[in-house]
């Protein structure tokens, strides 16, 4: 499934993540998944929100630097090798580069885990996930 990810640029300083979360709380937006990638100076906060457009608007109003990207979600079996066999192996075999991925609180059953991933070829990656019925 395709999902919209909202990314925010933050300086690596105390209180910045808090500021983002306060904006989202104020707009009554819930975070479904979150990943932070950082250097010593700055970070990129990537989020899957229950209401991405509203969240984006609230963050922009608060003068954050933001962007939106399409991501793919995959529901994978919650067993050893699940991620390997349902995502990593088939993508590698198809020559698709996974740029990054992180875990996602979806509404899957107890025996499933969810991840969101960004690849260099969303169309092809989507087909692969569909063919494996993990989309």
């Amino acid at each position: 499934m395709r999902l919209k990810q909202v990314s925010v640029f933050v300086e690596n300083e105390p209180g910045r993540l808090e500021a983002i979360l306060e904006v989202l709380e104020g707009a009554k937006i819930s975070i479904r998944a979150l990943s932070v990638s950082d250097t010593a100076e700055f970070g990129i906060v990537r989020m899957i929100l229950d209401k991405p457009e509203e969240g984006l608007q609230a963050l922009r109003q608060a003068e954050f630097t933001t962007r939106v990207d399409w991501m793919l979600s995959a529901q994978i079996p919650d067993v050893p090798g699940g991620l390997l066999n349902s995502v990593a192996k088939p993508m590698a075999k198809a020559g698709i580069n996974i740029k990054y991925f992180y875990a996602y609180i979806g509404h899957a059953g107890e025996d499933k885990a969810m991840v969101v991933l960004k690849t260099n070829d969303i169309e092809k990656a989507e087909e692969i996930l569909k063919s494996l019925s993990v989309d």
Partner: peptide, 16 residues
């Protein structure tokens, strides 16, 4: 230098 929406990327490599 201020990071604008136009140059901001979700990929760390591009920011670096």
């Amino acid at each position: 230098v201020e990071v604008s929406d136009e140059v901001f990327s979700d990929e760390m490599g591009k920011m670096e």
